[in-house]
């Protein structure tokens, strides 16, 4: 058998991905996380009426929830079921930061946790900034702000 034939054979014999089941679970888990966010978003205005303020508090609360669930070893289990449903919400972002912080703390607070806390979150931050910069630059030029 030639390697190319074998590679094709591997593709044909991979265990089937439960696409429908995964998608459904991602929908449910992601949806529920957003619903929790909505509950917070609806309650916050009682003591923080400004729109930006309540959105900020909601996000902070979601990040706290994500970090706590990570600390107690729950979030990785949630992700086994929910997949993207656990990764896409901001709680997933918080999870990557907390998970990396806990993991690399063993190499010290400075060179371990300090250096590597954002190691997983970094692509999101980096490309978030790069893409936003290009978008904002183009829009500012078009609007004649600059």
């Amino acid at each position: 058998m030639r390697p190319q034939e074998y590679q094709q054979l591997v593709q044909q014999n991979l265990p089937p991905r439960p696409v429908l089941k995964n998608t459904l679970w991602a929908f449910v888990v992601g949806g529920l996380i957003c619903t929790v966010g909505q509950v917070i978003l609806s309650l916050v205005p009682f003591f923080e009426p400004s729109k930006t303020g309540s959105a900020a508090i909601t996000l902070a609360a979601m990040i706290l929830i994500g970090s706590l669930l990570t600390g107690f070893g729950v979030y990785d289990e949630l992700a086994e079921v929910g997949g993207a449903g656990a990764a896409i919400p901001i709680t997933g972002f918080a999870n990557t930061v907390t998970a990396a912080a806990m993991e690399y703390r063993r190499e010290g607070y400075l060179q371990g946790m300090g250096a590597k806390m954002l190691i997983i979150a970094s692509p999101v931050i980096t490309y978030g900034i790069l893409v936003s910069f290009i978008v904002a630059l183009i829009k500012s030029l078009i609007l004649g702000v600059l």
């Binding site: 997949g83 993207a84 999870n95 806990m102």
Partner: peptide
Amino acid sequence: PIEMNIQHHG
């Protein structure tokens, strides 16, 4: 990292 959100496959 151990606690990171990963969905493992077959």
